[in-house]
């Protein structure tokens, strides 16, 4: 009983921290983009504008939560919840530190992939329920994009599984005590990162919500709290992909000595995640959005063969005993 209570407390704490962090990311992103574009960025609310997200939250809560009369009300309401919940569920399998982590699922990696696949429902249903052209086009793109990129996302991490011999994320981290997997799985990492960006539909792969073409894509008709959920989902998934990258390729909370003793493992983990988040923001600032056909052909024609090649070479080396 006490175990369950402790677990519940842990879950609550993690969610209670994750959501503000995701919200803070909005401010971090705007501020960083500002700096990189030689602007100042939001700096008015609180010191350095740190409370900007709070202000945004208050504003968005104050907005009319409008459901278009032409929409499918129930689906319209459920869609954003699916998105946010799927991402939050994924965090259950992330090992934050040697002692922190909701669940040590044996199939943790598969669970993550499953949740990522489920989140496409959020986008498709939102687009469908909105009953509007932009939203539908956005969700069609999202569906195609997710389906395409999931394929090699799964394949790219198979190298990691091959080398560590486990789907359990905590074991994967522990397997990297002698060296991070980035050394051997560099190609796998790149492919995973690209697929991850596409999964969280961030720039330059934000075609489902391409503002210049589709107004706001699948969430064109959304406002108020429901829109906030989509927003939250996006930033959570940024954090999630970062966390997964760290866990799979950068040794999770592990650090080589003597660095490891300087900070507690959790902070190392968070620091690594932050670096990835910054990288995501930098991508958004610097790269233009490709055309949709370019996106798909890039996925199927280059990424998928590369992922297969990576798996093949890893398997061959493994068999050949290169990794010992």
């Amino acid at each position: 009983m006490a175990d369950i209570l402790v677990k519940l407390l842990e879950i609550t704490i993690i969610i209670a921290l994750l959501i503000p962090i995701a919200a803070m990311l909005v401010w971090v992103e705007r501020r960083m983009i500002g700096i990189w574009q030689d602007r100042l960025g939001p700096n008015r609310v609180g010191p350095f504008g740190i409370l900007q997200s709070l202000a945004d939250l208050l504003k968005i809560l104050g907005k009319e939560d409008w459901i278009p009369p032409f929409s499918d009300r129930i689906v319209f309401t459920i869609a954003p919840v699916i998105g946010a919940v799927c991402v939050l569920m994924s965090f259950a399998v992330i090992p934050f530190s040697p002692s922190i982590g909701v669940s040590d699922l044996n199939i943790g990696l598969l669970f993550f992939l499953a949740m990522a696949s489920l989140s496409v429902y959020s986008v498709v249903l939102a687009g469908w329920a909105s009953n509007s052209k932009y939203a539908l086009l956005g969700s069609m793109r999202a569906a195609a994009q997710m389906v395409s990129y999931e394929v090699f996302m799964g394949l790219s991490v198979m190298g990691v599984v091959l080398l560590t011999g486990s789907f359990n994320l905590r074991e994967i981290v522990l397997a990297q005590q002698n060296g991070w997997l980035i050394q051997t799985q560099f190609l796998g990492f790149i492919i995973f990162l690209i697929a991850g960006i596409a999964e969280s539909h961030r720039l330059p792969f934000d075609l489902p919500e391409a503002e210049t073409e589709l107004t706001a894509g699948f969430h064109t008709e959304y406002s108020g709290l429901k829109f906030a959920l989509f927003f939250l989902g996006e930033y959570l998934s940024v954090t999630l992909i970062s966390a997964m990258s760290v866990v799979l390729f950068f040794g999770g909370w592990l650090m080589p000595e003597p660095l490891a003793s300087w900070l507690p493992p959790l902070l190392w983990f968070i620091l690594k995640i932050l670096c990835f988040v910054m990288f995501f923001i930098l991508l958004r600032t610097s790269l233009p959005r490709p055309r949709f056909d370019q996106l798909l052909s890039f996925g199927w024609k280059y990424m998928l063969p590369l992922a297969l090649l990576n798996l093949l070479v890893t398997a061959a080396f493994k068999l050949g005993g290169v990794y010992g």
């Binding site: 500002g34 700096i35 990189w36 574009q37 030689d38 602007r39 100042l40 930098l282 600032t285 610097s286």
Partner: peptide, 12 residues
């Protein structure tokens, strides 16, 4: 290039 702008002064 974009990253380099971390260290340039804001125009605004």
């Amino acid at each position: 290039l974009v990253l380099k702008h971390t260290f340039t002064k804001a125009d605004t």
